[in-house]
Design a protein around this nucleic acid. Structure first.
Lengths: 201, 201
DNA sequence: ACTGCAACTTGCAGTCACTGCAAGAATAGT
DNA sequence: ACTATTCTTGCAGTGACTGCAAGTTGCAGT
């Protein structure tokens, strides 16, 4: 279940290790002292790197704490979605796609869980997390444009994108409420059910 | 339709004028040169105020550009919602409540429109705008806690909050697509319809 | 092993958002 | 007119983040 094709070259391994070290240090220090009482310099030297290098890895302190990374969507899931599948009904196909994003969201469960816990105590991180959703949604909109050729939908991209974002966050919250049982994607059906429940009143 | 109880005391008037001046300067300069090529100092002196005073009015440069302010929800709307009304069905009552928020979101239409236009060219502003929604949702969750006493709902607060945020943004986007006809709240039904359309597939 | 290449790290100097503090100016209440 | 309150402002400081140029390190070909 832990993704990542494992480091091949020595360089790729170091890159991976350094990244992890930065995230680990950031999460630990912020957990101990709070987001505003930890400097990037402290995080960097705790990870044995320079401050300048920190910013070669992350755009901001918050990103490091959340362990934000590029999302590499499974090419199979991607192809199926753009082809108009797997079911042909937008809502359930969207659910499958979001599940694809969620499982690749973090390199490991523990890191994601720590990130969620920190979000509970640091509201700013929630905002950054949602901002990251925006990036994923940007990716999604490209897929949607492709999918429209195969199977047009009467719903506009914006709405679909926002619902995707809602499902990501909703299942993350459900995951947290369950005290982090399984992974976030496992709680997606629950998120969809809640949404339908509200709409059907 | 322009809200605001009009300035009474001299102090309240100045406060209002200075705030407006800052927003106006911020929106104009950022429109001309872009968000990252305008400093707070430039905005402040364009408004005839000191940099330090700028931060007495806004928490950040982005906030000034968006003209973000505290939301004063109509007490009538508020009371009706917490009492379990007006219709008794959560979804449509939520719609009424969101409409209440939207109409009081900006002191005037033009400012809201300019903010929307700037968001189109400056993605960072979108994120700040969504972050502001989070604040509104925080307010909403208090109302929900109150309403539950009068009329319990099987849907959890998080989901309701996220849908409220979605509706705010969705109707703002629909407003922009209509080339800013009427106000944002006028496009709420459209937003709800799109959401239902997606859910019903 | 030697060499040239590309990727990566690092220090340095700089910009700018944002904050606490304390002094001064404007205003409101009496 | 006197006083308390509110608001503005300058000042000094912190820390995030950036571009640049100089090392350093792993990599490929010979």
């Amino acid at each position: 279940m832990t993704s990542s094709p494992l480091p091949s070259s020595a360089r790729a391994r170091q890159k991976r290790e350094r990244r992890l070290a930065l995230i680990e240090a950031a999460q630990r220090l912020v957990g101990e002292r709070g987001l505003d009482d930890v400097t990037v310099e402290e995080i960097s030297s705790a990870a044995g790197l320079s401050t300048r290098t920190f910013f070669n890895y992350f755009d901001s302190k918050d990103d490091a704490v959340l362990g934000i990374q590029e999302i590499d969507l499974d090419p199979g899931v991607r192809a199926q979605f753009t082809a108009g599948g797997p079911s042909g009904r937008m809502m359930s196909d969207l659910e499958a796609l979001v599940a694809g994003f969620l499982t690749n969201a973090a390199p490991n469960i523990e890191q994601g869980e720590r990130a969620m816990r920190l979000m509970m105590s640091e509201p700013r991180l929630v905002q950054r997390h949602i901002a990251w959703h925006q990036r994923v949604i940007g990716e999604l909109e490209e897929l949607l444009a492709e999918r429209r050729k195969a199977r047009p939908s009467p719903v506009d991209d914006d709405t679909i994108g926002m619902v995707a974002g809602l499902l990501m966050r909703s299942s993350a919250l459900a995951w947290a409420r369950s005290d982090y049982e399984g992974d976030a994607a496992a709680h997606l059906p629950e998120a969809v059910a809640q949404l339908r429940l509200l709409l059907d009143d």
